[in-house]
Amino acid sequence: MQPFTVLESLGCALPAANVDTDQLIPARFMKEPRSVGYGQFLLYDVRHDEQGAPDPEFILHRAGANDAEVLVSRRNFGAGSSREAAVYALVDYGFRCVIAPSFGDIFASNSVNNGLLPAVVEEDDAERLLTALGDHPAEINVDLVEQRIRVAEVDVPFTVSPVWRTKLLNGWDDIDMTRQHEETITRFAKDYARKFSWASPQPPETNIISKG
């Protein structure tokens, strides 16, 4: 994964609370293979009317939005389902950072696994950033080394868990990290199976073999 250090880009303001994963990508699009590019589904029902016509006023349809890599929103961003597709939609659209006062837990860890930084700011600071960005994509600087965000005169700190920061700074992948512990895992599994023998599921005597 591409390491994340300092991002100098355009930011979009999405001034809404509880932007849940069902809004980020409606479930009906999730049967598509990733190769089609999930960016087209991002916030689909929010930015299109019932006939599928795009709302020209919506921030993602403003000039410059295609180049934006940062999204600023309100509290509880990414609440709801565990669908990683919500992160794919953001990442495939081109976003590398979302800034909000709080995030859904699963969404935040999914983000980090895809190189997307979930930056947590104070509620007041989120409002200042939203105001500074206004209703058009505007310049923004996100510095993961210093943990600061700048838009024009506004300069605010953000937090991210130290573990996630390290992963993002280095562009690390979990599976690589874990396989270094293979021996420890094998030893643990053996001990565990002895200690909690009943926890290994035994198929019932009259098991059914499902073909699907």
């Binding site: 565990s82 669908r83 990683e84 597709a85 992160v87 699963i106 999914n110 696994n113 599976i175 874990t178």
Partner: peptide
């Protein structure tokens, strides 16, 4: 609940 990257991680390890 976990996301798809984590599903892959659990499947693998």
């Amino acid at each position: 609940g976990i996301g798809a990257s984590e599903v892959a991680h659990v499947l693998a390890t």
